[in-house]
Design a protein around this nucleic acid. Structure first.
Lengths: 128, 128, 128, 128
DNA sequence: GTGGTCTAGACCACC
DNA sequence: GTGGTCTAGACCACG
């Protein structure tokens, strides 16, 4: 999966793991049905506690992005190209987006600049 | 300032206050030099503890968005229309944006849909 | 940790705590990964409020010197012997140093005397 | 006096003024008996409240660096080349120096690097 | 057990 | 009047 965790970051390791998997799904690197590395193997690879990996996977399950099966492992569940049917996600997501964009705007980034940056991020998901 | 805090939210009250002020600056409702409500008045208005408001103001101070002067109050410092000179902000902000946009993409929102949503958010800042 | 706080000082208790921890890290008494005393234990030891200790720890976290994990405690993050990669720290630190040294010079300390005093301070960090 | 104040800084304006004057004395640009600009003229030049300048001058008086005479103005009192006779200054100054140097050490600057930086600061005082 | 959040006050310094 | 600091608790989430 080519994931790097930064032990010196303020962001908790399980959150970093979750973020990287989300980005992998967004970029199409992780496709529906694909298996995520087993908790213990990943924990060993990163040199962290298996519970940390488990917590990251659990976050993803809570978001409906993966399925966890104790016997067979953890699988990608969502396909980024299957349109949402549930509007609850957008309802919760939009305010967070507004706050994050507002932060950039308040710090002096112009609307066009922010739009460019968003485009750059979105294109990075489609390039692969 | 027309701010509402939600005591039932997971988000700490001081963080909600910080978010609302950031959005106010982004939208141009709060302009440079403008005074924020005194800690105790706002605390009374929200029915929360003054220290909670103070912590929110302190967060904003740490982000360089307000100036706190014990004698005269708390003022908006950053002008959303003064371009950033420090690239550190963007360096820290961009990855957070990528992760948040990736979340939408992973949940099935298409790139164009996300772009529309970003535009809607950005336009809401400029309307006022 | 052998820390003393002075309740009669002008310096806030949480700032004193922060200063002592910084000095502990500088002197190598507090090494990477080492656990700081739990907030409540330290508060009891000093006879101060746990929130006061928490605020001191939070300052250190903001400086990147410790990691705070609500489940497991507060740990030293920076190693004094891992060179800085970020020049921002020096950029912000140097002017403060200039002002403090200028204070000594303005009060009549000669350059050599100041250099000796600096050396004495630096040597005290390495002695342990 | 060639002083610049930064209205966007976290450091209070009166403190900035005090710092710049201290640095001026340390560098020998401001010599004993020299007159500082009148409060109102400086306030007008900076576009700040005269009380802010007055507070800065008052800090300097408290440190024994200037004399304030309501009729004739504010004068530099200390000569940086008159050695200290009172050890109280060093007693109060040294711990602040230790804490500031410790901050650099804790952030990963080596003792030699810190010594170089101190030397650079000290030399900047003597160059003029 | 850990830290995080918050209340309902208090007192302080400053102007 | 302002914010800053601090107390002495409380409850929460997490593991």
């Amino acid at each position: 999966m080519d994931i790097q965790l930064d032990a010196t970051s303020e962001v908790p390791l399980y959150q970093q793991l979750r973020d990287r998997v989300v980005e992998g799904i967004a970029a199409g690197r992780l496709r529906t049905g694909e298996t995520l590395s087993p908790v213990r193997r990943l924990a060993a690879a990163f040199g962290v506690n298996p519970a940390t990996i488990g917590k990251g996977y659990d976050l993803l399950r809570g978001e409906g992005l993966v399925t966890i099966n104790a016997k067979s492992g953890t699988f990608v569940r969502r396909d980024r190209d299957v349109p949402l049917t549930d509007s609850n996600f957008v309802d919760a997501w939009f305010p967070r987006l507004v706050t994050l964009l507002a932060e950039g705007r308040a710090q002096g980034l112009g609307p066009e600049r922010i739009r460019e940056i968003c485009d750059a991020a979105l294109e990075s998901f489609e390039r692969e």
